[in-house]
């Protein structure tokens, strides 16, 4: 069956992009092959490992189990778009606490952690482990990933306390 190309438009890391693609193109392949954003990894390709996690309209999703056409009109953030003018606290945390060994799961682990902290700025250790349930680290370096996220949470609360210093408190 000849495939009809479909036009998709989305905002990726702040930039509006449009491409004509086959409908069967997965979001992760769209990001990596159409846009050249190879920070998002393909691990298991069966929605288990979480290496392909990106933010879709601010929510962590596995990009190997989303068609690019399903992200039409959406906003996508990949690991390349996580930092602003400086490293994201999650990136600082992974750096400071050795949250990676081989680094393969790291982009997905960081995006999942960033999503967790956006939902719950002060997670307990149990909540961090639950929040990272959808990420598999093949080096089994979970302990340092948890410490990295705890460090990131502390950094983020420092920043928000400092920025709130001139307010009521």
């Amino acid at each position: 069956m000849p495939e009809v190309l479909t036009t998709v438009t989305m905002t990726v890391n702040g930039q509006r992009v449009a491409r004509s693609i086959e409908p069967r193109v997965l979001l992760v392949h769209f990001l990596r092959e159409e846009l050249g954003l190879t920070g998002t990894h393909v691990g298991c390709d069966t929605s288990q490992c979480g290496a392909c996690t990106v933010l879709l309209d601010g929510e962590a999703v596995k990009a190997c189990t989303v068609l690019a056409v399903q992200a039409h009109g959406a906003t996508v953030t990949t690991i390349e778009g996580l930092e602003g003018t400086r490293l994201h606290p999650v990136q600082e945390g992974f750096w400071a606490k050795h949250g990676l060994q081989c680094g393969f799961c790291t982009p997905g682990a960081m995006m999942t952690a960033a999503y967790l902290l956006s939902q719950n700025p002060h997670p307990s250790e149990a909540e961090i482990r639950e929040g990272l349930d959808g990420v598999v680290c093949r080096c089994t370096g979970y302990e340092t990933i948890v410490r990295a996220v705890q460090h990131a949470a502390a950094l983020m609360s420092e920043v928000s306390e400092t920025s709130g210093a001139e307010d009521v408190d």
Partner: peptide
């Protein structure tokens, strides 16, 4: 169900 990412979709 599943994990965080799965429940989001």
């Amino acid at each position: 169900i599943g994990d965080v990412q799965v429940r989001n979709r």
